[in-house]
């Protein structure tokens, strides 16, 4: 079953996180959002309904790693990629396009490497950069419909470069500008942070910025995010951006610090205190189990 949704409900960052954690193989297609002018109510809020428009971008993954990306309307073949990366001049690119019209990317890469036009490293880094540019730009999209199809991969003749998603998620989150979105994801700076269970493994090969390391060095369930920001002389927006990136990449988890007052407590205090939980004996639960089994 394909995963379907809209980026306004489930962002690109969240999707990449899901694909990474689930180790998925398949292709994510993002479509243009076609406005309908029809209002709908979602979770008590009115918003305009959107429909699936033409394809905008395709990104492919193999066992949770990014391997391919293409943007509609952009020439994404190897010649264009190498030309954009400055590895081929405009003239070289034009000549190769004319002479190698029917050659696929993999075969063309071999020809260019054997002819000493470019090195293997040039090909890999240029393709990698192109894939990342596509993914970073679509991480700023905020409403488009999407679909993830399991096990659908790009044609075999396309060059695929595996890229770990953790770094992509962190870098993409660094680029998120929308303060509102950050506030929504991390509304309470009085929460604390802790490392996940297999932290050592998760941090392996991850490239953190100086700001991220500064935050990581303070991680302790005793310190609130606000305290970490203060210790590092960071603004609320800066700390939110850093924590959001780390959290989305699965490198940290949010926890309540000891003694934290529940933000809803004041609201609930106005109401009569909840009655104590009923003292139910094990035998009662066992009888309920037997009954439901027999229905």
């Amino acid at each position: 079953m394909p995963l379907k949704g809209e980026l306004r409900d489930f962002s690109t960052t969240q999707l990449l996180n899901l694909i990474n954690l689930a180790g998925k193989t398949g292709t994510l297609t993002i479509f243009q959002a076609k406005k309908t002018g029809i209002m709908e109510e979602v979770n008590g809020k009115k918003r305009e309904r959107i429909e699936v428009g033409p394809e905008k971008a395709k990104v492919s993954f193999k066992t949770g790693k990014l391997i391919f990306a293409a943007m509609n309307g952009q020439e994404g073949n190897l010649v264009a990629v190498l030309n954009k990366a400055g590895k081929l001049t405009d003239d070289q690119a034009r000549i190769i396009r004319e002479r190698a019209k029917n050659t696929n990317d993999k075969a063309l890469a071999l020809l260019l490497i054997n002819a000493n036009y470019v090195s293997q490293n040039d090909v890999i880094t240029s393709v990698q950069q192109y894939i990342l540019d596509v993914v970073y730009s679509l991480m700023s999209w905020a409403e488009e419909p999407f679909r993830f199809d399991d096990d659908i991969l790009p044609e075999k003749d396309r060059i695929q470069v595996p890229i770990d998603l953790e770094n992509v998620i962190i870098e993409g989150s660094r680029r998120i500008k929308e303060i509102e979105e950050l506030n929504q994801h991390l509304p309470n700076l009085d929460m604390a942070l802790r490392f996940p269970e297999n932290a050592k493994e998760k941090f392996k090969g991850v490239h953190l910025s100086v700001e991220e390391w500064r935050v990581v060095s303070f991680i302790n369930p005793k310190y609130s995010i606000r305290q970490i920001a203060k210790a590092n002389n960071m603004s609320e927006i800066e700390i939110r951006r850093v924590v959001y990136g780390l959290e989305q990449a699965g490198l940290v988890e949010l926890v309540k610090p000891p003694g934290m007052v529940d933000p809803n407590a004041a609201n609930r205090a106005r109401k009569p205190a909840a009655k104590p939980q009923p003292q139910v004996q094990k035998v009662v639960v066992s009888r309920l189990i037997d009954k439901i089994r027999s229905i």
Binding site: E6, R8, D9, F10, N43, V285
Partner: peptide, 25 residues
């Protein structure tokens, strides 16, 4: 909600698996 939650033995959270717009809620 809170009135109904009083004294409960446990609870089930239902999620419409086909509506990602309701996951956050």
């Amino acid at each position: 909600w809170e009135i109904l939650a009083e004294g409960m033995l446990g609870f089930v959270v239902m999620v419409d698996s086909a509506k990602p717009e309701t996951f956050r809620e």
